[in-house]
Computed example of a mutant assay.
Amino acid sequence: MNVTCEIVGEETATVSLAEDATYADLCRAAGYSPHEVSVLVDGTPVAEDGTVSESHVELLRLVKGG
C-alpha cells in the first residue's frame, strides 16, 4: 500500500507499506521516530499502534533540530 505523508510545513513524501503496517511503521518508513512525530488523519491524532488504512496522512514534527 502506498501512503502519501505530508510533513506539516515541510514536504510531502510517498512511502510503501505492508497491508498490516501500523502508524509507527509509517513514521519509520518516512524517516522519523514515532516519538518525533504525531500522525494526523483528517486533523485528528491517531495511536501509533493502529493499522494504517488511509492513503493520505499528515506528520506533525514534535522535535526538530538538536
Results as ranks from 00 to 15, higher is better:
M1E: 07
N2H: 04
V3P: 00
T4M: 13
C5P: 04
C5R: 01
C5D: 04
C5I: 12
I7W: 08
I7G: 08
V8D: 02
V8R: 10
V8C: 01
V8H: 01
G9T: 00
G9I: 05
E10D: 08
E11P: 00
A13P: 00
A13F: 00
T14R: 14
T14H: 06
V15P: 01
S16A: 15
L17F: 10
A18V: 01
A18H: 11
A18L: 11
D20W: 02
D20P: 00
A21D: 02
A24F: 03
D25F: 04
D25L: 02
C27F: 10
R28F: 10
A29M: 03
G31P: 05
G31H: 06
G31F: 06
S33R: 12
S33L: 13
S33M: 13
P34A: 06
P34C: 07
H35P: 00
H35W: 07
H35C: 08
E36P: 08
E36I: 05
E36Y: 08
V37S: 10
S38F: 12
V39Q: 04
L40I: 12
L40K: 03
L40C: 10
V41D: 10
G43A: 11
T44P: 06
T44D: 15
P45C: 12
P45G: 14
P45L: 14
V46D: 04
A47N: 14
A47V: 07
A47E: 14
D49W: 04
G50W: 10
G50I: 00
G50F: 07
T51K: 05
T51F: 03
V52E: 03
V52I: 11
V52D: 00
V52Y: 01
E54Y: 03
E54C: 05
S55Q: 14
S55F: 04
S55L: 09
H56I: 12
H56M: 10
E58W: 08
E58P: 07
E58R: 12
L59G: 03
L60S: 14
L60Q: 15
L60W: 13
L60I: 09
L60R: 14
L60Y: 14
R61L: 15
K64R: 12
K64T: 13
K64H: 09
